[in-house]
Amino acid sequence: MVDKKQALLLEDFDIEIVSRDLNFYYGDNQALFGISVGMPAKQVTALIGPSGCGKSTFLRTLNRMNDIIPGARVEGQVLISGKDIYQHGTDVVKLRRKVGMVFQKSNPFPKSIFENVAYGPRIHGTRDRQQLAAIVEKSLVRAGLWEEVKDRLNDNALGLSGGQQQRLCIARALAVDPQILLMDEPASALDPKSTARVEDLIGELRELYTIVIVTHNMQQAARVSDFTAFFYEGALVEFNATKLIFTNPKEKQTEDYITGRFG
């Protein structure tokens, strides 16, 4: 019965991100064990699980951010729009343009608000000042920050509040026009009000982008996501529609985790 519901749900969507038998190693330590999952397009998928379960590691395999870690190694496939991103000859620059990322700790550059958002388009070749200004405005509007900063675009970004900084980072990621947005605990360092703001924002952005969000906050996963993947000790335990995961988990481990019996 549950299986049928899940099948129905997933069938309604194009699957944009697929990982097949994905293993990941930090040197000799295996961090991910045979992850196979397909995440639907233009939906919010939450990755949940206790600390150290591999959810952030998995997220970072999707835009190859793990490449910069010395000794990191990947086996298996990650397909984005049908193309294996670990195939030899993949242009990582193009990939990361398509797959944007927002980090746990907001990390705006110590430059002006304008320069922060314009950074991505600039390195990808947009020189025209008016065009850049248009991109900056559009991105800031989408990130829900435009009204607050439109009169001080030339101020240093580090003068913004924590919540504003994180939304600026989202705007910066949107400015290169990605298809997919990866968010690594984007609200974990924010106060409740700013968190609510970011969560609302995710709700607005899901129309336009495929979003994968790592969160250790289960209420947040329940609030913002359409699908949820539960990770435990480097393995994917269960993947399903968020409603089903939270009301009718198939696996005992999932149930234990979401009911707070461990974590």
Binding site: V93, R97, F103, N107, P110, I123
Partner: peptide, 17 residues
């Protein structure tokens, strides 16, 4: 801070950029 490097790389900048 490491965050600047990560943010820049994640936007599709090359290492040298």
């Amino acid at each position: 801070p490491k965050g600047y490097r990560e943010a820049s790389l994640a936007l599709g900048a090359t290492k040298w950029e």
